[in-house]
Simulated assay, not measured.
Amino acid sequence: MTRPLRLVAVSGGLQRPSKAAALAAHLLDLIGREAPCEQRLIELGQLALQFAGATWRPQLPDAVERELAAVEQADVLVVTTPVFRGTYTGLFKHFFDFIHQDALVDKPVLLAATGGSERHALMIDHQLRPLFSFFQARTLPLGVYATDKDFTDYRLRDEALIQRADLAVQRALPVIDLARQTLSATPGMAVAA
């Protein structure tokens, strides 16, 4: 029997509760309804003090190393970040600086961000997509961008955003299914695309 997908979300939110984490959790739930998976949400704000001052991976404590390993071993990633000065947070980038450069090759990644206004919606395509292109990850076709007004008590409330998130997951399913097929393929066998 095929093991469940390892579905990992990374939220670059610095506070708890966090709109970025809430969006990540919503996307995890949507994917979880469509595919059997083990879900994990990594909130970088909770790890900040443990890795913010490190410059090399061997300097990191075990708790951070476990989260990095979870990202590297994931079958599918969801990444969310608040927009800060037009881009992802420095903490978000610092965390991904520790990821091995080949660990995300061909890994499906659903991109999402939160911001104070719609002005920053294109940061998904102009900031996040290039970052994960460096890793040669398979960024999924639709990103999800949410503003402060889309939430009530850290829950998505805007119907258009909820529909966009659902559409992003639906469009991601063929790529996620391919990842699932790869899991069920026996070693040495090619998977038909």
Rank of each mutant, 00 (worst) to 15 (best):
Q15H: 09
D125G: 13
F51R: 08
D125F: 14
V10G: 05
A137V: 07
L140N: 03
P61D: 01
L128A: 00
A22W: 04
L47D: 14
K149V: 07
V64H: 15
Q170N: 04
A146M: 03
W56I: 05
A190S: 08
L173C: 07
L91F: 10
L131K: 06
V169Y: 01
M1Q: 12
A172W: 00
V10L: 08
P187A: 12
P36N: 14
A121C: 01
A20W: 05
L5C: 05
L49T: 05
R129A: 15
S184G: 04
A24F: 15
I162M: 15
D148R: 02
P36D: 10
P130C: 14
A35S: 12
F96C: 06
V71I: 07
T55L: 06
L41S: 02
F95Y: 03
T139N: 04
A168Y: 00
A121I: 03
A22H: 05
T186Y: 15
Q39D: 03
Y145P: 02
D166K: 00
Q15K: 07
A21E: 03
A63N: 07
T186E: 15
R180G: 01
D166N: 01
G53D: 14
A168W: 00
L44S: 03
T81G: 13
C37Q: 09
Q127M: 06
S133M: 02
P108C: 13
P174L: 09
D166C: 01
A190V: 12
F96G: 09
L7R: 04
Y145M: 02
L60C: 14
F151C: 13
R180Y: 11
D166T: 08
D102P: 07
M123Y: 04
H26G: 05
A193V: 10
V175T: 12
E34G: 02
L7H: 06
L41E: 02
T114R: 00
M1Y: 10
C37T: 12
I31W: 09
K93I: 02
F134D: 10
G13H: 11
A113Y: 11
E43T: 13
L111P: 02
L183P: 05
H126D: 09
L161K: 12
A69N: 12
D75P: 09
D75T: 12
V64A: 14
L183R: 11
R33K: 09
P17G: 13
T80Y: 09
R171A: 14
L110Y: 00
D97T: 01
G12A: 11
T80R: 05
K19H: 08
Q181I: 11
G188N: 04
L173E: 08
F51E: 04
T114Y: 02
D177Y: 15
A137E: 01
T2G: 01
V64Q: 11
A52M: 13
P130L: 12
A9P: 05
Q46M: 09
G188C: 08
